[in-house]
Design a protein around this nucleic acid. Sequence first.
DNA 1: ACGCTGACTATTA
DNA 2: CTAATAGCCAGCG
Length: 160
Amino acid sequence: MIMATPKKTNRPVRRPATKTGKARAAAAPKKTANPASTPSRERLTAVKPSGGKDDSFFDLVHEVARQIPRGRVTSYGAIAACLGTRLSARMVGWAMMAVPYAKKPVPAHRVVNRNGLLTGKHHYSPPERMQQLLEKDGVAVKDDKVVDFKKLFWDPATEL
DNA sequence: ACGCTGACTATTA
DNA sequence: CTAATAGCCAGCG
C-alpha cells in the first residue's frame, strides 16, 4: 500500500559494527586511564577508610551526577552516553548503588530512567525519600514520574 | 575462567 | 499501554 510505512519497517536491530572496542571512548571528560583499581564492592560491603583514590567507573558516574544542576534531572542513558557507554546504562545505575558509599554526596535522586520514572526509589531508605528530594529541588513528581521530564532533562553530553 | 545478575534502553509483537 | 527479546558492561561466586 501507499502508506508503506515510511519508517524502518524491517530492522532486526542489528548492530554489528560499532562494536569496536575503542570507539566508544569519546567522552570521558576527565580521564579514564586507570582501570583497575578495585572498583566496587569494597565500598559497597565495607567502606575503606583509607584511601586511596578511586578512579573507577563508579566515580566517573558520581562526578557527572554531581554536576546535575538543582531542579534538573537526567537519565542513566544520558550519563552513560556522556561516558561513552550509551548502551550500557546498566552500569550507570549500578554505580548509583555505590553512591551512598561515595566520599562526596551525589544527588542520585536527580537520575531517573528514560521515562522519567523514579526507578531507583526502591533503593532509598523510604522509597518516598527520592521524590521528596526531587520536590525539594523544585522538581514536580507525580505518580512516581517526573513532570515535564523532557523540559527538566539535563544532558551532560550537551550541557556539560 | 565461565555464568549470573543488574537503579537501563530500544525495538518488536 | 504491556510483554517479550536482545544488547551492553562490570563485578562476584
